[in-house]
Computed example of a mutant assay.
Amino acid sequence: MTTEEWIGKGPRFPLRPGPAGNLEYVTGDELIRQAIGTILDTDPGERVMLPGFGCGLRRYIMEPNTTATRAAMERDIEAALTRWEPRIDLTNVAVTPGEEPSLVWIDISYVRLVDRREDNLVYPFYLR
């Protein structure tokens, strides 16, 4: 089984037609990054058939950009990614303040389990 077969293939989100008019699909690193983004963008209870799915970052909107808020976000992100993304081994999650008072940077470091390749994703999130 190849690395790409193990990671899988899925539709690109948002759904849109490709150049030939059919749906576009993603594989490999792009699929994993898209899955991480989906987990971060989804609130638990939002998906009817999978009510526990998601991270719930929206609950931090309008919270102060403090060390306590960022630490709570880190814990929630670690728990959600550990539970919902089985293709990676999470190595680090860091939530740091951005240039603007309402901006935080979410830095996610992980290892792909299929080939032990290290990767990271930086995700901006606005608290206001």
Rank of each mutant, 00 (worst) to 15 (best):
M73V: 06
G45V: 12
P19S: 05
D89P: 00
G37M: 10
A79F: 04
P51L: 02
A68T: 15
P97A: 10
E99V: 06
I39C: 02
P11F: 08
P14Q: 13
Q34W: 12
L81C: 01
T2D: 15
R83E: 05
I7N: 03
V93K: 01
D115F: 05
S109D: 13
R33G: 09
G18N: 08
E46L: 05
P44R: 03
E100W: 11
T91I: 02
A71W: 13
Q34K: 12
D43T: 12
P44M: 07
R16C: 03
P14N: 11
A80Y: 05
V95F: 03
Y25V: 08
G37S: 10
Y60D: 09
W84C: 00
D107P: 02
T66P: 07
A71F: 13
T27P: 00
E118K: 13
T3S: 15
M73A: 07
L81M: 11
L50K: 03
G10K: 05
D29V: 12
I108G: 01
P124Y: 11
E85G: 02
G98A: 06
T66H: 05
R75G: 11
E46C: 05
R116K: 09
G8Q: 11
A68P: 04
P86M: 03
R116Y: 05
I108W: 04
T96Y: 09
T2H: 15
D115S: 10
T42W: 01
T66L: 14
T38D: 15
N92Y: 00
G21K: 02
P17K: 01
I61M: 12
R117T: 04
F13Y: 15
A68V: 15
I88V: 09
G28L: 14
N92Q: 12
V48A: 06
Y126P: 09
T69Q: 10
L121M: 13
W84R: 00
L23G: 01
V114T: 12
R12N: 09
D119K: 01
G10M: 04
R87M: 03
D115T: 03
M1G: 14
R116W: 04
T67M: 09
W84V: 00
I61W: 08
A79D: 11
E30L: 14
T69W: 06
N22K: 11
G18K: 07
L50N: 08
R128G: 14
E100F: 11
M73S: 04
L40W: 02
G28F: 08
T3P: 03
T69D: 04
G8W: 10
R12I: 11
V26S: 13
E30R: 15
V114D: 14
E46R: 04
P19Q: 12
M1K: 14
R112Y: 08
T96Q: 13
D76F: 02
P64M: 07
R70Q: 08
L15D: 11
A35S: 15
T91L: 04
I32C: 07
V111Q: 07
R59S: 12
D115N: 14
N120W: 07
Y126H: 13
Y126W: 06
V48R: 07
M49R: 08
G98I: 08
R59T: 10
I106W: 00
A79K: 04
